[in-house]
């Protein structure tokens, strides 16, 4: 039992306060759904949130841990088998670049909720799954990781070429 493969779910809210997401992953239903999908560990980066998830996994066999901030979020993403993230573009593209399966949970409490645009567009293109705190359990249960398409990172070259051309520099 001890040497079985670890499959870590990493939850990140970046520098935001997103208690609704932390509460959702801390719920019995979501934890059970994750266990059924074969995940063994749940690691939560809770940012500026005040809700502290319980480290006690109760009857469940899921190892739960949490911390507030880390300068090396990328290392945690690299170690993870599944990332559940807030909808910030930084976290989204960092996870996609590292090629990890990603569920983006949109924070509906934000006033100017433009963030869902990006998550929904990338979900439509099958680069990630898009969810809300209250539907996270269903998303975990319904997700098919094989359906995900790798994201080809963009590049600044074409934009910079146009800028150079506009300014009259030889390209």
């Amino acid at each position: 039992m001890g040497d079985r493969e670890r499959r870590v779910v990493f939850v990140t809210v970046g520098t935001t306060c997103f208690d609704a997401l932390v509460k959702a992953v801390d719920s019995e239903e979501v934890k059970q759904a994750l266990l059924r999908k074969g995940y063994t560990d749940l690691l939560i980066q809770m940012g500026r949130g005040t809700y502290v998830p319980s480290k006690d996994s109760g009857k469940l066999n899921l190892q739960v841990d949490h911390f507030t901030f880390s300068p090396s979020i990328a290392d945690y993403i690299r170690e993870a088998s599944l990332v559940i993230s807030h909808a910030g573009s930084g976290s989204i593209f960092e996870t996609l670049r590292l090629g990890k399966p990603l569920i983006v949970v949109v924070n509906e409490d934000l006033m100017d909720n433009h963030q869902s645009e990006l998550a929904e567009e990338l979900a439509e293109r099958n680069h990630l799954f898009c969810s809300r705190p209250q539907t996270l359990q269903e998303t975990v249960e319904a997700m098919d990781l094989d359906a995900l398409q790798p994201y080809m990172p963009g590049e600044a070259k074409p934009v910079v070429a146009l800028i150079n051309k506009f300014l009259g520099f030889p390209v």
């Binding site: 930084g90 593209f93 600044a156 300014l167």
Partner: peptide, 19 residues
């Protein structure tokens, strides 16, 4: 903040620094 700076730095990295 955040994502904005990451995008901007991608542009800056591509710029010809002498220009």
């Amino acid at each position: 903040s955040g994502g904005h700076t990451a995008e901007m730095m991608n542009i800056i990295t591509e710029l010809q620094k002498d220009r």
